[in-house]
């Protein structure tokens, strides 16, 4: 299999050419302890839409997501070549400042990980470390973001209680609100609903669909139906390579590549 076999439909090409994408990946290679995890990735992720990364487990889709905000840096024995441009700025450049890059991207992890502090402080954490000290402003931010994720009515009377007392679905929405509070441009989701019950999953999915008018969203998922429900575009990754990238309908209903076909039909998982 070669990276050059990755197929991009004509429509996608047009769409990508229309505006400068938030995220462009050029010749990205990631090696972890001598093993090549990602091979020659070239992608432009469309703005203001949801792009899902799908593929069998261990194919490198989570690593791909983590290279976008440089969380992959902390992995043992990792080597990265190539570049990831966010708003035209290479985040792997020598002088790139990593906290600044990460601020631009909210991360929603597999399981909700509320910080060990109150609900209020969870949301205010990001703005505070970036220098916001004004109590009134912080209050406004907290309320706005909790409303954004539909949590305000549920928690407005217990903002000072510990975030770990919320239900797991509420916690995940809190984590989303926490990410939004640092005013990112991009939201990254790493199988963000895999620990949730169906109703909470639906709430998160609906939220993401609503949020895409303001944000560029990249999700990793292994649930094809979820990719189909929420995403506008799909990236299919197999053995560290991007095999197919296109509109959701095209990739799922009319895949061009043999492996994609097999995966979509459920022959490989």
């Amino acid at each position: 299999m070669h990276a050059s076999t990755s197929i991009q439909t004509a429509e996608t090409q047009d769409l990508i050419n229309l505006s400068t994408p938030h995220i462009q990946i050029k010749d990205l290679n990631v090696t972890i302890e001598g093993k090549r995890i990602l091979k020659d990735i070239n992608l432009s992720i469309p703005n203001n839409s949801i792009t899902s990364i799908i593929g069998p487990s261990g194919c490198g889709k989570t690593t791909l997501l983590k290279t976008l905000n440089r969380l992959v840096d902390d992995t043992k024995g990792v080597e990265i070549t190539g570049s990831v441009l966010v708003n035209g700025e290479d985040i792997y450049a020598k002088d790139a400042e990593v906290t600044h890059i990460r601020k631009k991207m909210g991360l929603l992890s597999q399981k909700p990980f509320p910080l060990p502090m109150s609900i209020f402080d969870n949301i205010a954490y990001g703005p505070r470390i970036h220098g916001e000290r004004n109590k009134e402003v912080l209050k406004q931010i907290v309320e706005r973001q909790l409303r954004n994720v539909g949590l305000w009515e549920e928690v407005k009377d217990r903002l000072e209680s510990s975030a770990s007392r919320l239900s797991i679905g509420q916690q995940q929405r809190l984590c989303l609100a926490r990410g939004l509070a640092v005013q990112p441009e991009i939201i990254l989701g790493d199988e963000s609903t895999s620990a949730l019950d169906p109703i909470s999953t639906q709430t998160i999915e609906n939220l993401l669909v609503e949020l895409k008018k303001d944000y560029t969203i990249v999700l990793v998922t292994h649930i094809l139906r979820q990719a189909r429900r929420v995403s506008d575009h799909i990236i299919f990754v197999y053995a560290g390579e991007v095999v197919e990238f296109g509109r959701t309908e095209d990739v799922l209903l009319n895949p061009q590549n043999e492996i994609t076909k097999q995966y979509v039909k459920g022959f490989i998982s």
Binding site: R102, L107, I129
Partner: peptide, 19 residues
């Protein structure tokens, strides 16, 4: 993942450690 949650909000490592 908890460390990632803090780091991905743009916190430095030391901020993540103390807070």
């Amino acid at each position: 993942e908890l460390k990632n949650a803090s780091l991905s909000l743009g916190a430095t490592k030391w901020e993540t450690v103390t807070k």
